[in-house]
Design a protein around this nucleic acid. Structure first.
Lengths: 219, 219
DNA sequence: GTCACACGGATCGCATACGATAACCTGTGA
DNA sequence: TCACAGGTTATCGTATGCGATCCGTGTGAC
């Protein structure tokens, strides 16, 4: 059975990620305890963990609140994620089964459909799944864990500061296909890493350019 | 005043990093409490934080112990650090003052001296300082925090599984000089990133090769 | 002799209660 | 209008108790 601390952690993280507890939301320990009939200790411990992971800020003698990210944080996370995912994708190359590649291709097809249906939510979701399937095969647990949290970070920030670049989605799907071709052909690690990194940097640049054109600062 | 939780955290982390609590060392909460006259809760909270940062493993109903890393972890961390530091170095380029560069050059000179004096401890220490001075100027707090923990990880693992590559130190100093030249000349970001990344990968390769030659598995 | 199982110590998980401390708000009086 | 005192709120830290769980050990059946 999962410990209460785990339950509290999952509950809080879930609500932070799905937006129930938005940026800046105060997390009052006593209140949480009364609401869920769980004493303060598990809450305190899970808040410490969330603090270490960067989801929550704790100020001594004041309390905990959901972290807020300034707008530039999205760009910075993308920039970092490009490098991490470039590496992970290259490392995964040797580990990917044919079934994995088939899964990825299927997701990419579905993305094209989502695009035709004007379903951006589904597109975003599939995009994350597409990359997750690939990088989860990288033989480096620590790297995978980092990638998971950075992707979650990205999702969270996207909800607060909506980012978008019209037209980018089409290119993105094409780049996915090209990336899969490289993986299937067992291209050398450097080529794959560069392609995967550049794929993400292209998105970053498209969004940045779009934001600038609209006069919205991003950095 | 720092909270007790902070005190416990610093104490534990310090002892883990300096080797007092080696890999696998059991951290019994009650015992810690009795030894330092601090009740269990601050210990529990700091252990949660250390767990999230990867320094400690907590098994429900069994207890906490200092994490152990298999030998391949050093190589994996270097591989990751190469990418992170490549990025951070490139980002720092525009922010570095002349004083920073002068500091870095001085450290590199001292590294050459340490080399002549056969003082590997000092060399290692200076090497870390050299890179720290540079990447701490990168305009990305989160990235810097990641780099700090990964470097600490590296130090910790090095102590458990000693890694070494004779002759590499000389090249390393030369590559530092070249890197500083690029930074001083405000070379473009890609060039700097590649150089910084490759610098670390060269060390990784040298050590791997040396280990293989000695028949010691590293991966 | 060996294996399954029960027992007990060690340790954590969690609840509860209480005092200390710090931050914040508010109303009073000059 | 402003400074300050006092109350409120919340966390921080301690103490204590009890149940749950894990794990090593030893007993007893076969």
């Amino acid at each position: 059975m999962a410990t209460r601390t785990d339950v509290c952690y999952e509950l809080l993280k879930g609500r932070i990620l799905d937006g129930t507890y938005g940026p800046g939301h105060r997390l009052v320990i006593d209140q949480l305890g009364r609401e869920h009939n769980i004493s303060t200790i598990p809450w305190r411990e899970s808040l410490r963990r969330l603090e270490a992971e960067g989801w929550v800020e704790i100020i001594p003698n004041v309390g905990a609140r959901v972290a807020t990210f300034d707008e530039g944080e999205w760009a910075r996370t993308m920039r970092l994620l490009a490098r991490l995912e470039g590496l992970a994708t290259a490392l995964a190359s040797d580990e990917l089964t044919e079934a994995d590649l088939a899964d990825a291709r299927r997701m990419n097809r579905e993305m094209r459909e989502a695009l035709a249906d004007f379903d951006p939510m589904r597109f975003t979701q599939l995009n994350r799944q597409f990359h997750t399937v690939i990088f989860h095969r990288a033989p480096d647990k620590h790297l995978i864990a980092l990638l998971d949290t950075e992707w979650a970070r990205l999702d969270f920030i996207r909800r607060s500061a909506f980012t978008h670049a019209p037209g980018r989605a089409v290119e993105s799907v094409a780049e996915h296909e090209a990336l899969l071709d490289l993986l299937e052909a067992h291209a050398d690690a450097d080529t794959i890493e560069t392609a995967a990194r550049q794929h993400k940097l292209n998105t970053l640049e498209a969004v940045t350019r779009h934001a600038e054109a609209r006069g919205t600062a991003l950095a």
